[in-house]
Design a protein around this nucleic acid. Structure first.
Lengths: 195, 195
DNA sequence: AAGGTTGGATAGTGAGTGCTAACAAACTAT
DNA sequence: ATAGTTTGTTAGCACTCACTATCCAACCTT
């Protein structure tokens, strides 16, 4: 009976909540506004979710883009530094882009810590994968011996900074595209860490 | 008559506003709370600042850590890649750390865009300085010929990511210190970009 | 047609918001 | 001591907030 194209009221409310909260902040939107944007009455919101907080919680659960990173990573790794770093970069930025609105919401309010944890699980997992990858590469003598965790953190922070710089500010820090950045940053790591 | 140790009511209010807003968000604190934390009456707040928004605006103006970056940069540059990058990293992180609370406030609310601009002026200037520095270093043949602006952006984003990662989350992503990160990240650039 | 589920409409709760008015108390300067 | 300035106090404004209660209409299943 349930159709993917015809959204039911619950879905309409969750999507409206994500849109509006990303735009104006959790505290910046009222439940009346959300209900109106979803095209339903405010009562329907509270009947289905009980509270504003729970609405966001369920929305994050439902629309949080999550992938089997470990699986994808293991399937695509070819133990070539440049190729593998590109794979990781792309995976990272796809996750972040898809969850862009959710990040905007949870970073904007200090009272959403539990919900925030959900949104930050994936980057942490990716860091773990990358660290282990660097250690393996060192064993294969395809990477100079350095602090693998530190290099992994550096790589992730670099990409985190790139993502963050275009998350908040409307005036782009620069005109260069993200593709250029990815190529250039991976170049940097390959040149610096290849034996 | 004005003493640096004995704060007047205006200063008390601005500092209380910064503290509380950084902790609970602009919309998460009431003017009553701020006045109470400052130890003055709410009327004093409105008598001195007129509105909550203006209180924050004046507080940012007053307590925004700003330095003559161009001057300091030109005085300290010695055209050695490692040393100069360290100088820039330190300058960057000191600016960010000192303005930490202000960043937390303005990033937490979408309606504070004008105020946000003030807080982001310095990092942009630093990027400009670094780009020109890389171009100069290339002319001196102390840097391999690459896209100077792209490398500067990458360096700044790396540091931006490092700062941001410890701005929001309470659970530190890692045990590594910022000093370790700075050394490691500069190592990376020196190894990759030295001729 | 009967009964059950689901949603809309309206009105209202109590608490909190930023901000103002009015007056008295305290301090400062002359 | 007198006048002027800066404060605290109290009360209150008009408004918004998240959330609830109640009643009624539309729908579905059998």
């Amino acid at each position: 009976m349930e159709n993917k194209l015809i959204l039911d009221n619950k879905a309409k409310l969750m999507l409206a909540a994500i849109d509006l909260m990303a735009e104006k902040g959790y505290k910046g939107v009222s439940t009346k506004e959300i209900a109106a944007a979803a095209g339903v009455s405010e009562m329907t919101l509270f009947r289905n979710f009980g509270s504003k907080h729970n609405l966001l919680d369920k929305a994050v659960d439902h629309y949080h883009y999550a992938i089997e990173m470990t699986h994808i990573f293991n399937e695509n790794v070819i133990w070539d530094l440049r190729a593998d770093l590109l794979m990781i970069s792309q995976m990272y930025h796809e996750i972040m882009e898809r969850n862009r609105k959710l990040f905007l919401i949870v970073l904007g309010d200090k009272e959403l810590t539990e919900i925030r944890e959900k949104a930050q699980k994936h980057p942490r997992k990716l860091l773990e994968l990358l660290t282990n990858y660097f250690i393996e590469m060192q064993k294969k003598n395809k990477l100079i011996p350095t602090d693998a965790e530190m290099q992994a953190i550096t790589f992730m922070w670099m990409n985190y900074g790139a993502f963050m710089s275009q998350l908040f500010v409307k005036t782009e820090l620069t005109t260069k595209s993200k593709e250029q950045f990815m190529r250039s940053s991976i170049d940097l790591f390959v040149r610096a860490l290849s034996p």
